[in-house]
Amino acid sequence: MKVVFFGATSGMGRSLARAMAARGDRLFLLGRSPEELLRSAADLDVYGATPVKSAVCDLLQPETFDAALASADAELGRFDTVVIAAALFGTQDQLEADPALTAAVLTADFTNTILFCEVARKLLLARGGGTLCVFSSVAGDRGRKPVILYGAAKAGLSFYLEGLDHKFRAAGLNAVCVKPGFVKTSMTSGLPSPPFACGPDDVAPRILRAIDRGTPVVYAPAIWQWVMLVIKNLPRFVMRRIGF
């Protein structure tokens, strides 16, 4: 595969990118900080065999998207896979207290992520298809007290990806919506670990398999599919009472 990877410098993105590099996929990294990009590219150079290049791309600056994807194309020579693991996060308490932060999270995780997907989708479809893998979240499966705002953005993103899958699968575009449960990364550090919490290296193989197969929705770890099935079917009077 020739992969453009937005958000490979930390967390699950880092683990997934390593798994790709280790099996010989070619990678091009996009991210906000040039220094972080260089460090992660060096890391992936050791895990893989081919040198990894990168370009700056900021989820809060949609005007950077076209140029970033163009430089990826120039470097890789027609990429066939785009992964977006980049996102912003804030806890419900932080977001409620800070409207500017709320605006940033909603813009980055919903509007701008979808704008990026649109650029990538058009490029992929123009070359006969490919895979667009986007990290959404189990937070987008149901309105829940601890993730109302973040979850709302992710819910919108999940809907968008489902629509893409319906419309463009026949044309060769595999939209893969990743719904991680609680994974111990720097994003979740400081939050109390619920049951079934696991590390990023534990979920990377499952996500990679979903990309290979073009699975439209993948929960990682797998147990969250069943957890969310229950949560989605709980009546409202229960959801109002529990803190989950």
Binding site: M12, A85, L88, G190
Partner: peptide
């Protein structure tokens, strides 16, 4: 305010959790 586009908790909260 500067944001980090990769999954990251806001620096202000770089959680000093007990």
């Amino acid at each position: 305010m500067s944001f980090i586009p990769e999954f990251t908790i806001m620096p202000s909260t770089q959680c000093q959790t007990l």
